[in-house]
Design a binder for these strands. Structure first.
Lengths: 233, 233
DNA sequence: AAGTGGTCTAGACCACACC
DNA sequence: GTGTGGTCTAGACCACTTC
């Protein structure tokens, strides 16, 4: 039998979760204050605070000063998704990773891109197209541009040997990233590269990474049909 | 000017993030220990600990006892996504929410479902089909089954008045949920209901919710074309 | 064996939100 | 004003890992 000590914060969290799971405290209910719980559990208030704060982070409870702590009405709202580096994703599935650098082009931003990222329209960018493979089979298609003003050294990197992603991660500081997830129909060229039917539904991930105010790189990943991103709460 | 006090844990976190963002500490580097940082910042070790733990949670640094704290090599791995209740999602976009209950059927699980969730093949389920709308336009199509053994009362609920999701959230305890995100082509019936072309790429969310060992409900949501799930790290 | 992060405590004060 | 959560401190001990 597993004993849960309610004088550890994880024990307190487990006990609170149990009471919610078993309906002892129901959604919308006000639960006892920290001092009261600390007294009941025989631990310090800081320990209760740590536990409740963790539960609030995961969205199971809602806390407000003076108003107290309530069981959330919409318990499952925040989900933490692991967005793996493609190479690790492939290897975790037991396949061998490889990639083909399909193309590379120096370019200036289109008006839309320039506006979106606050770039001058004569900014120097590098466009890169890569096909990621799992056991030689197409896995995901990557379209990326890199801001040369921020990462000029990448112009001299042998991107056949090390992927642009890995080089950037290792050499660029980073402050902020935006992700979006969506679905799109495969274009004819995407279908050819990913070895699927034109129009097939593809899982799309867009990621933009910033260093301070300047965008470093923007990536669009189109996964081969059948890709599923999973998570547990 | 905004002053950051390094004797608050958020201030310490901001300062550490700055040093990483500006390349002072680079990916893979070992950073000073907690006592050293506490001394430098003029705060208690617990404050530094709180800040570094937060950064570790978000994946920016990696910590190991004895080995110390390092700047992560793959900084962006864990992403927290808000999975909103559809009604709130619609209302947050400034539209008016409504839904149509398309169908409802008592059923027993298919062999595949029974095996997946450990149900007897004569278990009683309710199947529900719902179309969610934003300003009357189709927004998402929901297919759901509810385990009557766990939630028998739902058989008597007027699901035209309150959505199954909201009823369940408010009346069922809950312990665990599994999410998956993928893309799929619209079937002809989905296309008709969502008012799009057959074969259009749809963003699909699957969610299964458990109370202890028993599954409560499984939902498949197919969003109308153009739906994007966004997040910032 | 020893060093580093992980956690707990007791007490204190602060900050916000409701009255 | 007053009550609740939010945070800080100083010190202590524990647990994991590497040596």
């Amino acid at each position: 039998m597993t004993v849960i000590d309610t004088n550890s914060w994880q024990g307190v969290r487990a006990e609170v979760m149990r009471r919610i799971a078993e309906g002892e405290w129901r959604p919308g209910d006000l639960i006892p204050g920290e001092v009261e719980l600390a007294d009941e559990f025989g631990c310090a208030r800081a320990t209760v605070n740590r536990a409740l704060q963790d539960l609030a982070d995961s969205g199971l409870i809602e806390r407000k000063r003076k108003a107290g702590t309530r069981v959330a009405l919409n318990p499952v709202r925040k989900v933490t998704v692991e967005v793996p580096v493609i190479r690790q994703d492939v290897e975790a599935r037991g396949s061998r990773y490889s990639f083909d650098l399909l193309g590379r082009r120096e370019m200036t931003p289109s008006p839309a891109i320039a506006a979106q990222y606050g770039l001058r329209d004569d900014a120097a960018l590098v466009g890169l197209w890569t096909l990621h493979r799992a056991d030689r089979a197409p896995f995901a298609l990557e379209e990326r541009w890199v801001n040369l003003a921020v990462a000029p050294e990448i112009a001299n990197v042998d991107l056949e040997a090390v992927s642009a992603n890995e080089w950037l991660v290792r050499h660029m500081p980073l402050s902020r990233a935006e992700f979006s997830f969506s679905a799109g129909n495969a274009s004819s060229s995407e279908a050819r590269l990913l070895d699927c039917e034109p129009g097939a539904a593809l899982f799309i991930v867009n990621r933009t990474t910033w260093a301070g105010d300047a965008p470093i790189t923007a990536v669009r990943l189109a996964y081969a049909p059948g890709y599923v991103m999973e998570t547990v709460v």
